[in-house]
Design a protein around this nucleic acid. Structure first.
Length: 475
RNA sequence: GGUCCCAUCGUCUAAUGGUUAGGACAUCACCCUUUCACGGUGGUAAUAUGGGUUCAAGUCCCGUUGGGAUCACCA
């Protein structure tokens, strides 16, 4: 049987990190076995539908390169791929399940189940409608009475199923809730739509959060009552914000698009979350999506929840930035330059010195804004023990640097460094005694991206000379 | 509360029942160096706990503790 997995988000807003990781594992299971990855939109809850949410789903998957083989936008042999468009299918199967004895019609008011629970101290809901004979129920329905279709748990004993991650899990049938399968508005619940769709779409592996473990026996019972074969189950642990709380938008936790907006590269985010709960069994940590396809093994997914560590993601993002070609990095950096730089600068060279120094693209702006406007600074900055400079030496250094650089034509880092080094030697000074004051003069900052001559290259000759003479006036 | 699940450095994790319990991030020190980075070297740091089984337990079993999930006409 062909491996087919599905990513089945409900369009309720942004794409959160745990969701994206589930999608990734689904994608990898399919693609590591030359299978198909299907996108299905689960919009059976009209109340929670958020406009534009499906577009975010499409955009995110495309951004990380996880292209689907079948889906609402591209179609496929098992469509439609939006659950609201499949409404008649669920009704048909739900009524069929009643005939098969796996479900029953229920006329209870919506809050009756809750009341019963509160009064009887949280015991399982006992649906009185189970006792209504089928033909009587059909008469009431024909008379227009509102109803839902509820699952009938007709088995006793222990249900056992196998999960790729968690192994064999046993749950007593008595624990199972007789949940609603078809709502009074005619839409199915997740519990039902999922089973019907996964079967009809021939999904071979169901990947989802481990919060579904306890209801899996209910789904298996539906498969059984229909005479269908259940899929392979891969329940994955939660992605946590800390030891107690899972990652969620309500707490303001980062979504995929938030991270991208914060200057993280989509590939880096994907790589990081792949390792959050999975490891390849080697010590390799940096993987492209294609590499992951080759080695992914769902049996190596962990059982315990993983805490999302932005610090490690930031490190990994730095690795991805450094691995970029200079051209690619420059293209990504350009929009950030445009936010804060207007003067004519050697931006290509700026990118060169910035690339190994930043971990997220957002680091760029605070690092380079001194190029636009020289910050206010105190002359005491020129004193530096390690560089063996004080105010007197700095004044001398700036004078030497100025006269040296005025004569300089070739404005490259190598040429400038050579020229200033030679000047230092001629004066029997240490390199740092010249270069440190020049760097301060050019930046007004104690730490800068790049050394004195590198900054000079970025600033250009005119601005470099201007800033050095301006520094001289400060003494 | 019932049921189910989980438990190795601060974090992500590795370890056919036999390893000085390994790696990565973070952290600290040092090296490199025109500051800061990058890069390099080294250090600190973990098997929650109590019992078993075994010649041998992070690994198997039971209890305890801690955490999570679930018990919707949400998914």
């Amino acid at each position: 049987m062909k491996t087919r997995t599905r990513f089945a988000p409900s369009p309720t807003g942004y794409m959160h990190i745990g969701n994206l990781r589930t999608a990734l594992y689904e994608y990898l299971i399919a693609k590591s076995q030359n299978g198909d990855f299907i996108l299905r939109i689960e919009d059976t809850d009209q109340k929670r539908y958020v406009e534009g949410a499906t577009d975010i789903i499409y955009a995110t998957l495309k951004q990380v390169g996880m292209l689907w083989d079948e889906g609402p936008d591209i179609g496929g042999a098992y469509g439609p791929y939006v659950q609201s468009e499949r409404k008649p299918i669920y009704a048909e199967y739900a009524h069929k399940l009643v005939e098969l004895g796996g479900a029953h019609y229920c006329f209870c008011k919506q809050d009756e189940a809750d009341e019963q629970k509160d009064e009887e101290n949280n015991i399982k809901f006992q649906d009185p409608c189970k006792l209504i004979p089928l033909d009587e129920a059909k008469k009431r329905i024909a008379a227009g009475e509102p109803y839902v279709i509820r699952q009938t748990v007709h088995k006793k004993g222990t249900s056992v199923f196998h999960d790729v991650v968690y192994g064999d899990i046993e749950i007593d049938y008595d624990e199972l809730d007789e949940g609603v399968l078809l709502k009074s508005d005619g839409f199915p619940t997740y519990n039902f739509a999922n089973v019907v769709d996964d079967h009809l779409m021939e999904i071979s592996h169901v990947v989802r959060g481990n919060e579904y473990i306890s209801s899996t026996p209910k789904y298996n019972l539906i498969y059984e009552d229909f005479g269908w074969t259940p899929p392979v189950y891969v329940h994955v642990p939660q992605v946590m914000k800390d030891a107690q709380h899972k990652l969620s938008k309500r707490n303001g936790d980062a979504s995929f698009q938030d991270l991208v907006a914060k200057g993280y590269l989509p590939e880096a985010v994907l790589n990081y979350i792949a390792l959050l709960g999975w490891n390849p069994g080697t010590e390799q940590e940096i993987f492209s999506l294609d590499e992951m396809k080759k080695i992914f093994d769902p049996a190596r997914i962990n059982k315990s929840p993983a805490i999302f560590d932005i610090v490690k993601l930031t490190w990994m993002n730095g690795c991805y930035i450094r691995a970029l070609s200079p051209e690619a990095f420059h293209a990504l950096a350009l929009p950030y330059y445009q936010k804060c730089l207007t003067k004519p600068l050697n931006l290509a060279f700026l990118s060169q010195i910035l690339q190994p120094r930043i971990e997220t693209l957002q680091d760029i702006v605070p690092m380079v804004s001194f190029l636009e406007n020289l910050p206010e600074y105190d002359v005491s900055l020129f004193e530096n023990k390690k560089m063996k400079t004080d105010l007197t030496i700095a004044q001398k250094a700036l004078q030497i640097a100025l006269s040296t650089l005025e004569k300089q034509d070739a404005w490259t880092n190598e040429a400038l460094f050579e020229a200033l080094k030679t000047a230092a030697e001629n004066q029997a000074m240490k390199n740092g005694q010249i270069l440190y004051p020049v760097r301060i003069a050019l930046s007004g900052l104690a730490t800068t991206p790049g050394g004195a001559t590198e900054l000079a290259v970025v600033l250009g000759k005119a601005e470099t000379l201007r800033r050095i003479s301006e520094a001289q006036n400060r003494f």
